[in-house]
Write a protein that binds this DNA or RNA. Sequence first.
DNA 1: ATATTATGCGTATACGTATACCCTATGGCG
DNA 2: CGCCATAGGGTATACGTATACGCATAATAT
Lengths: 344, 344
Amino acid sequence: MGRQPSAKPTSFDIAYLAGVSQPTVSRALRGSKSVSAATRANIQRIAQELNYTVDKNASSLRSQRTHTLALLFFEDPNPDESMINPFFLSMLGSITRECARRGYDLLISFQQMHNDWHVTYQDSHRSDGIILLGYGDYQLYLTKLEHLVEMGTKFVRWGSVSEDGIGLTVGSDNVGAGEQAGAHLVEIGRRRIAFLGDASDHAPEFQDRYNGLCRAMRAAGLEPDPALQRDAVSSEDSGYAAARSLIESGQTFDAVFAASDLIAIGAMRALTEAGLRLPHDVAVIGFDDIPAASLTTPTLTTLMQDMKGAGSLLVDALLARIDDRPVEQRILPARLIRRQSTAV
Amino acid sequence: MGRQPSAKPTSFDIAYLAGVSQPTVSRALRGSKSVSAATRANIQRIAQELNYTVDKNASSLRSQRTHTLALLFFEDPNPDESMINPFFLSMLGSITRECARRGYDLLISFQQMHNDWHVTYQDSHRSDGIILLGYGDYQLYLTKLEHLVEMGTKFVRWGSVSEDGIGLTVGSDNVGAGEQAGAHLVEIGRRRIAFLGDASDHAPEFQDRYNGLCRAMRAAGLEPDPALQRDAVSSEDSGYAAARSLIESGQTFDAVFAASDLIAIGAMRALTEAGLRLPHDVAVIGFDDIPAASLTTPTLTTLMQDMKGAGSLLVDALLARIDDRPVEQRILPARLIRRQSTAV
DNA sequence: ATATTATGCGTATACGTATACCCTATGGCG
DNA sequence: CGCCATAGGGTATACGTATACGCATAATAT
């Protein structure tokens, strides 16, 4: 009873009470097998009683391992600052859970493309590695990634998975998903399918989706019409503008495959305003299955990415990278969610 | 050139190059005024050149300050694990930004109401304080909070602001927002206004909103009918069920004030299915202004909470609490967003 | 001119843990 | 009965920084 309740116990306190030395406490709690079962049990009991916790800072300082990962969202600074891509937000849940399961803490930050991630997070020993999520200026982005590789920073990013990519990338099977979308539209009888989304190599994921669409069309004996492709970034406004451009061009089309749900939602607004009936005149497919997709009129058919799988895959891959183990899986399948916007 | 590029520089390296002692480097970089301007400038230049960063673990260990806050979402374990209350998610952006602005890192975690937050985060020196966000089993919740207070844990939570609350709470002006909702419905001629949301003291925020509604009605000479109140938690399904219950009861009503947008969206589905025309037969107001609110049919009138303000207020309050300074502001105003669901 | 105070910095050390290394006792084996 | 391996754990120390304290020198006061 003479102890100060406010003073947090250290491993020395435990050691004293257990009649052993401080290193033995450390060894016992970390599971070293050079401690007898009886001693270990005793130490654990005492630690429990005193509500002892290993000091994270001291532990990290000594072991040079933080058991912390950093999650960086980097998007172009948005006029509406509080707006975050909903798709990435929903990945957050699975990432945090996977981190917790693996005993890792998660630091989170939104970055405006600064130059010093490695300095900020790895060199200052805040985290053992970095998860990168986001779109943005792709060229600028690549430059930064090369820099990270040079600095030996451990990181993994979500994106288009290809062998020549910079650093380690995991992502959905975008080509396969594009094929599913195309096949579905062909199946319901559509012939002239428009694609809304940047198809250049500035947006590899969108490009993959477009390539998948083209492949499905060709497999059905249709030739994709390049005039039916319109660039768009992932936002409602951009989707609206792209659809307007398509409508005003006078091209005929009976389906729209939007590279993201946000684009699709904007496009549906433009199409409806133009007096087109959905899905009768134009069928629409989105990508991501954000919560809003089931609230639109008509509800939006879309490709659902495996968000839960994505989170654990990202964490798995990063931990493998940190421990210099080979990374097993890198690609996740997507699933077609059929709703009213393609129900004819 | 003989230096190892991979070895991270320490304050000793800087000190050696600057011809001073290590503590002087520490003082210079932390802005102590007992270092001459010339020395400081020189040290900063060298640190810059070497890409030196203060080791976070060593710094935190020595100073017993982590400059890190922990954000805890605690909700009842959901069957759909990846579902997070969208309102809290949008608060995330402003919290991270405010932390960054103040030079704090942010740890994030989802908790299933475990007992040991303080152990996990404060006692193990992972963070200086905790931000709590979430609904959940309110009684259980209160017990945990009392425990936190006992342990001397620094924390702040989002919720119903009242003087007798446990710990430090900041939140929206729920009563005032409820009044705005009520006044608006009265203004468009509605007399029999239903409230969907738990009005017991298990959900103080909802209760406040209901009280605000009642106040506005009485101010207009109307007496709220308790039969028009239905309990609901913040989910679509719960809103749907509550609205069904109301419809089946045979009560007449010409407006619904839902305690959250999710409840409102579920209720609108039930109302529409029952053949009621919105807003002609029944006007609907929600709460939160989640992104989906502008996508429903009809679009949803709602009360927008000041999310950006909320984030900075939470961080401000917590930092004040950590430094034992008085907390200035605790209540944020909400704003009525008029959309189609009340446009008559 | 001496006493006083402030300035600028070095010396020593603490923060709490993890690990390399060393030592002792025990048992197995030939 | 001597030899070595092994279990079990102690001793010493490093991780990199921040701070209490002391000590000069210079600036001011008296």
